[in-house]
Write a protein that binds this DNA or RNA. Sequence first.
DNA 1: GTAACTGCAAAATATTTGCATCCTT
DNA 2: AAGGATGCAAATATTTTGCAGTTAC
Lengths: 142, 142
Amino acid sequence: MTAKQQERIEQMLRLNKLSVTETRTKMLEMFLQSKSALEHASFEKLNGKAFDRVTIYRTLQTFLDKGIVHKIPTTDTSVRYALCKSDCKEHEHHDHHIHFQCDNCGSTTCLDGTDVPPIQLPNGFAAKNVEVVVSGVCKECK
Amino acid sequence: MTAKQQERIEQMLRLNKLSVTETRTKMLEMFLQSKSALEHASFEKLNGKAFDRVTIYRTLQTFLDKGIVHKIPTTDTSVRYALCKSDCKEHEHHDHHIHFQCDNCGSTTCLDGTDVPPIQLPNGFAAKNVEVVVSGVCKECK
DNA sequence: GTAACTGCAAAATATTTGCATCCTT
DNA sequence: AAGGATGCAAATATTTTGCAGTTAC
């Protein structure tokens, strides 16, 4: 990890009033380095020293609470997480981007440059958040 | 259950080469009567005789395999199911409608009349299916 | 030093599998 | 009668909780 990245991670944690620990730093490092969304299992099967199962659950929950990561909806039971953009605040997410799930390699990617089109809802429904999950074949697998 | 509904359910099952059993009939009846999507737990907490846990798992999987129901993506771990339109075939779903998840009552609804807008993907990605999940406050809770 | 974080053990939940029995065709 | 469907028991897998020891500030 570069000094710059280390700095960035520490800042993310401090901004959210979280102490800088080894587990949190390494998990955030994984998020920053990964092109696709991560799931609980991603953190368990590390080469070398793995994280404790329980700590992973708790750390992911903390990151969610603070708005550092967001969950990505899936049709399988797996829950996937990805880093939020910098303008997400606690309990106030602004992730208006599209998620892409590859049927071939199973990876989930946030397509940051792609906007979610406006959705027309029936009368009586008030939209607060829109999630778009496109599935198909990703760039790498094509 | 009306005779007409009974007839409809039997037809759904026969069309998919499934034998008409009490569990399947009652579960389909629940799907037909429910305005919102159902989850595993919905079938467990029935007044009166409940279904066996394992049978529910197996029946939902069978319905999925045959294209009778589809899964709805969620950000919590819960998996929800809703009836497919009649033109869904085995392993070939055509559910291009929007799902609405209420933050207040937790219900998930299929908005059948609402179309999914075309999504522009980055180069290299090939879309096969698009899922849109809007969350907010539903008609009933407003 | 204190509060927050982690790791182990164990409890609570959720899901899957095997097999004997029962029901639909 | 035969194959499929169900229900029970038990094996797995997943998630949560409690608590004692450790680390960050």
